[in-house]
């Protein structure tokens, strides 16, 4: 309970990131630099300043597992009623594996369901530190083409795809999430490629298509950074439906949204 780590936010009453009512703890630091990232303030591990609504806000604070769990446990009544619990998001929780593992373990000790939203972009041994106390692995697969992946996220996807294969066997429950980003992966071919890959490692598995949104747009300005996807707009509903049908053709349990 005394393990420390760095987070930048705790959000209550999330209903779209794992089962039931959940509290999301956002850990700071990420290995990828996805251009569409809606939480750019999560990417650097170091504590930084961001301007929000005209005020300078410090992003990031160091906390112990106990401090986090005191806050998370305040909503225990809702977890019990809905099968919900704790979700680690970020950033990438695998950047702070001891802290993340300790949080998941503590949540299980409290009787809460656990989930992580993760890129799985880390050595498999690191990921395995989390698995004993992880109920749901919500894992991003953004593209199967390594070059394009590298161009838009800063890293190629070999490690991620390799880990996906392993996790399809070792994770208690694996859900693949695909952020659908116009100009990056929003064609039928690209979604087909991802779906084919998923159906091969996990026949009949779950896949969520998350439509691109611009809600993080302001934060780039607040951080003094450039938003390189200025010119794209969220996909139309009809487009999302088409991609949903595409994923379903591979026998996957697909849905739009989390």
């Amino acid at each position: 309970m005394n393990t420390a780590g760095r987070i930048f936010d705790i959000q209550k009453f999330s209903v779209h990131d794992g089962p039931g009512v959940r509290t999301i703890v956002f850990l700071k630091g990420c290995v990828l630099r996805c251009r569409w990232c809606c939480n750019p303030e999560s990417q650097n591990y170091k504590i930084e300043q961001m301007e929000t609504a005209g005020k300078i806000k410090t992003i990031g604070r160091d906390v112990t597992v106990k401090e986090v769990m005191d806050e998370v446990a305040k909503d225990r009544v809702y977890y019990g009623l809905s099968g919900g619990g704790l979700t680690l998001s970020g950033g990438e929780c695998l950047c702070q594996p001891e802290f993340a593992a300790a949080l998941l373990r503590a949540a299980h000790d409290f009787g809460f369901n656990t989930a992580i939203e993760s890129t799985a972009c880390a050595p498999i041994e690191t990921i395995r530190m989390l698995l004993p106390h992880l109920d749901h692995y919500l894992m991003d697969i953004k593209h199967v083409n390594p070059q394009k992946h590298k161009e838009f996220t800063g890293k190629d996807n070999k490690l991620i795809l390799d880990n996906a294969k392993i996790l399809s066997r070792e994770a208690r429950h694996l859900v693949i999430r695909v952020p659908v980003i116009p100009t990056f992966n929003d064609t039928v071919e690209e979604i087909s490629d991802i779906s084919r890959f998923v159906s091969e490692i996990m026949p009949g598995g779950e896949i969520n298509l998350l439509p691109y949104h611009r809600l993080g747009f302001d934060k780039y300005k607040g951080l003094g950074r450039d938003y390189t996807l200025k010119n794209i707009t969220p996909p139309e509903d009809s487009k999302m439906e088409l991609l949903l049908e595409t994923a379903k053709k591979f026998g996957l349990r697909a849905k739009i949204g989390g």
Partner: peptide
């Protein structure tokens, strides 16, 4: 009147935002 609506949250998977902290153009969106 943003001061009256500071608690209004917009939620999508993987993300929630306080409506009033978003920029005008995002709010319009």
């Amino acid at each position: 009147y943003p001061e009256k609506y500071r608690s209004l949250v917009v939620r999508v998977a993987g993300y929630s935002a306080l409506f009033t902290t978003l920029s005008r153009s995002l709010q319009d969106d």
